[in-house]
Design a protein around this nucleic acid. Structure first.
Lengths: 333, 333
DNA sequence: CTGAAAGCGCTAACAG
DNA sequence: CTGTTAGCGCTTTCAG
């Protein structure tokens, strides 16, 4: 293990002061062109790499941005993280990624880890269980700006990028109604998850607007995994008065339903149309393909990163970004 | 923006020396129990957070580990990154994640970024285009150990966790033969990608072992996306002498084939059986479900992290970890 | 344009 | 057990 080259080493080699080397390296204006060139060449030759600790210690900030999510694995998060990482790279930032696994205590510790490392800012999507925001407040108090996306705290007004889920719920419903469906079931997943509740409100609103009365048993709750879709499908197939369409707040469940329908030889979308949410890539691979509402992931990532950059630069965000989901029409509806 | 509390602030408040505070905070043995308790309490009260820059500057290392992958988004990578992140968290590490987008220059810059931040170690899966390893050598030269997984450099002998792809290719083939299939096509994807070539060798070997002669047109090459599967399926369906099984080096392509078969009302697996690789989650959601070979992702993550911890601790890895893929039997074969 | 001096926050070595 | 001293590598004054 070789000792790292420092600016002092370069200075010694060139018999100048290390301050000058520092200046030359950073493109400071007050440096003789020749000196500068010489320094740059020598740095290259001596394999100099700046020490982020030392500069961080001085500036008390880094070229790192923190990303906090509940889980890296779902398509939505891996996709947005990937986009943000690419954007960050272009601006000379490296990303530090934390996942809470939907655990409040872990999320808290992650925030502290980012604080210790004095990240320049944080982009976060919070865990379902997070009610208290003190760990984020701590970040802000230490001058680390936080921008939220997707799962934003209810109390946060401006520093966030969110989806108009109400509108998305309407969009899905209107689309099915326009296809002549009248007997639409809405699978709302877990109660008291904001995002889901908003989609449900959109559904109700669309029915209302179209003068369709909502049947009591047309709203279902339950888990949000594939296997839950199988349960739902079986329940629905057992009914005497079968619905002619199902809207599902997550694709995983919709795919479970789709699968069960295929096995039961129910024709989709003729007998039952299905619309999901979130544009899971599997939806494009199944047959029939799943019609779904997609988050504009690149835009979400772009806006979040943009907001964060602004906040890092000291600007204030005065209006949140509210983006719409897009209907992706495939075969299932 | 509040100034951060430092150990000196605590020292001043308690009228003791900051060295003592430092010792107390780190659980150094030579500290009076009472003093220690007092310091800990005061630190808590004054909202002290250690400054990673300062300690990093001293020790020239951090509690950060770097993860380098070509792309965060594919299921395999998001899954392994997620596992590694969780393991790292338990050991007090934070992770820094870099993606190269299969670009050698970006990979190089990412390595430098990790170097600047003096990460404690790196876990890497290299880009297809990476032939020169100087950026990784630079890391090693600066005392940053690198452990490779999945896409490991050919020259790397010990510090890696890899998959026995040859064996996996055999496994898939043997399975189909055991099901009575004789006329098996192998879709080998891009030529000169190691992983794929090894799977192909396994296929050839299995045929050989079973006394089946390999037909010229039973090995196909092409892209590795879903749409390439559609092309392949169409090509095969057009043949007078249709194969009775297809092995596909990636699930994405296998799923494209499966989809086309469903559309063409070809019975799977009766008329054509299909086996994929990599256990894409979509394979579990389609009907019929895709039989596939799965990487033991948790084990890969665990071994990689384990190797890295050993290397950080100064131990040498004397034998690479070679793991086997597991056959996941669903309906398609 | 260049140099000198000081200090960011922390820890290691040494002396009490 | 505690305090002193020094220094990690860099940047920011301030003085030439």
């Amino acid at each position: 293990m070789k000792k790292n080259t420092t600016i002092k080493d370069i200075a010694k080699a060139l018999d100048i002061h290390h301050t000058t080397v520092s200046r030359a390296l950073r493109g400071h204006p007050y440096v003789n062109e020749d000196t500068k060139k010489l320094v740059l060449e020598t740095a290259e030759k001596m394999k100099y790499f700046p020490n982020a600790f030392a500069s961080g210690l001085r500036s008390n900030t880094s070229k790192i941005i923190g990303i906090m999510v509940p889980d890296i694995r779902p398509h939505f998060f891996s996709q947005t993280i990937s986009c943000i990482t690419n954007l960050a790279f272009k601006r000379g930032y490296t990303v530090m990624i934390c996942q809470s696994n939907e655990d409040y205590e872990v999320e808290k510790q992650n925030a502290l880890a980012l604080l210790k490392n004095r990240v320049a800012g944080v982009i976060a999507s919070i865990s379902y269980k997070t009610k208290k925001l003190d760990h984020f407040e701590t970040l802000e108090k230490h001058g680390i700006p936080v921008v939220y996306f997707d799962r934003v705290p209810q109390s946060e007004i401006n520093n966030c990028v969110k989806i108009d889920n109400f509108n998305a719920g309407m969009l899905a419903t209107d689309f099915l109604i326009s296809k002549g469906k009248k007997n639409i079931v809405f699978y709302a997943g877990l109660p008291n998850v904001n995002v889901f509740a908003q989609r449900l409100s959109g559904f109700k609103n669309a029915l209302d607007k179209n003068g369709i009365t909502l049947e009591e048993d047309h709203i279902l709750f339950g888990g949000i995994e594939n296997k839950d879709g199988i349960k739902v499908a079986e329940k629905i197939l057992g009914r005497k008065n079968r619905p002619d369409a199902i809207i599902c707040i997550v694709d995983a469940v919709a795919l479970g339903i789709l699968n069960t329908m295929a096995k039961s030889k129910i024709k989709v979308p003729e007998e039952i149309a299905i619309v999901g949410f979130d544009n899971d890539p599997a939806g494009a691979l199944v047959y029939p393909g799943l019609t779904t509402l997609a988050q504009p992931m690149e835009e979400i990532a772009g806006q979040s990163f943009n907001f964060l950059c602004k906040r890092i630069a000291g600007e204030e965000i005065v209006k949140p970004s509210v983006l719409n989901m897009e209907l992706i029409i495939r075969e299932s509806a």
